[in-house]
Design a protein around this nucleic acid. Structure first.
Lengths: 194, 194
DNA sequence: AGAGACTGACTGAACGTTCACTCAGTGGAG
DNA sequence: CTCCACTGAGTGAACGTTCAGTCAGTCTCT
């Protein structure tokens, strides 16, 4: 019954995303998760070894959607500043439209789960093709349009502000309209441009 | 016996900072905290109503130290770009030298504890004098040396990158040396300068 | 000064709650 | 009937919090 299985597994993943994003990992009891997914508690353990594995599975689902959304909305011929601004803008817009995904990722990457995953990723860095468009932009630096900085600093100057701004937006401290998104993308560009 | 009391309360606060920073709030049992502070479990509840109050108390202690350190190390006559770069540099250096404080604050401000506190702070904003030097710099913008941006974006462009970079540093993804600190401060400046 | 009464900071075993996880049982498909 | 996906009451561990009891130190009375 691959169809039914798929449906149930997906239901669990979606319920997990919702609960984790809203309540945090440790305030999301499996029992509550089960009833939200309309599934018995035991079924969760049919599809996922334990809660940790479920958390990692949610992160993979979320990252895939995000990467797809970015790829779909990007004109591949854009280069330089325009490409950068477009990437950042789309990233903010996507996360702003998907609060659950943002809150989940925030939590994931500031927890041991995400840190372990990042470690594992770095070890594979040489072998695998990189699927992140922003990562690519920084690595290639076509035409030397950006300063020569350590990769970590590029990431810090991009994801750092975005993360802070979205957190403020979802906490109700700021209204994230089109203008503010534009200002943010431009400030990020100013921070790294040559 | 105010002296003895003070010592015990401080011991609890320091042990709490250490445990919370290293294990997170919900993996720091009161029992472990008590033995680290060399104190009976019950004594913790003599000084703090519950675990939540203890967490807030730690945050106040940490923020006070940080603010003091920044104030002490700043030449008050410095203005404009130099003042900004110095502030950012000192902030990074302080947090880099104080991993426990950084990890605690990170966790605190991405949890309901810190968000509630921020809300409360915003409501008081008009009344109180602001004690944060960076806050002051942005608010006054003396001589129009920085772009006109919403306050939230200034903060995002400052604390966002710093937070990301320090996280990478403590996770072992990057070596935070003097040069990298300088590059970070300059990138932050480029992001907000007029 | 000395004895006895008193105080309250301090302790940790015990309690109730919450949680991740298990497994005996159920029901539907073949 | 057999098989197996599925269920949820049950289990034990871990946690925050409580409170009856201890005892060093202080005060009062003789």
């Amino acid at each position: 019954m691959p169809v039914v299985q798929k449906t149930k597994q997906t239901a669990i993943l979606c319920a997990a995303l919702e609960l984790f994003a809203e309540k945090g990992f440790h305030r999301s009891p499996i029992s509550e998760l089960a009833s939200l997914a309309k599934v018995g508690v035991g079924s969760i353990y049919r599809y996922f070894k334990d809660k940790d594995e479920l958390i990692h599975a949610v992160s993979e689902m979320v990252e895939e959607s995000l990467q797809d959304a970015l790829t779909d909305s990007l004109d591949p011929t854009l280069q330089g500043q325009k490409r950068f601004i477009r990437l950042i803008t789309r990233l903010i817009e996507y996360l702003h439209l998907h609060p659950l995904e943002f809150k989940f990722l925030e939590q994931y990457y500031s927890s041991p789960y995400g840190i372990d995953k990042k470690h594992a990723k770095l070890l594979r860095e040489n072998d695998t093709d990189q699927s992140s468009l922003i990562f690519d932009f920084y690595l290639t630096n076509q035409g030397g349009v950006i300063k020569a900085l350590p990769l970590s600093l590029y990431f810090a100057m991009t994801f750092g502000p975005i993360s802070f701004l979205l957190r403020d937006s979802f906490s109700g401290f700021v209204v994230l309209d089109e203008k503010l998104i534009q200002q943010t993308a431009e400030a990020c560009w100013d921070a790294v441009k040559a």
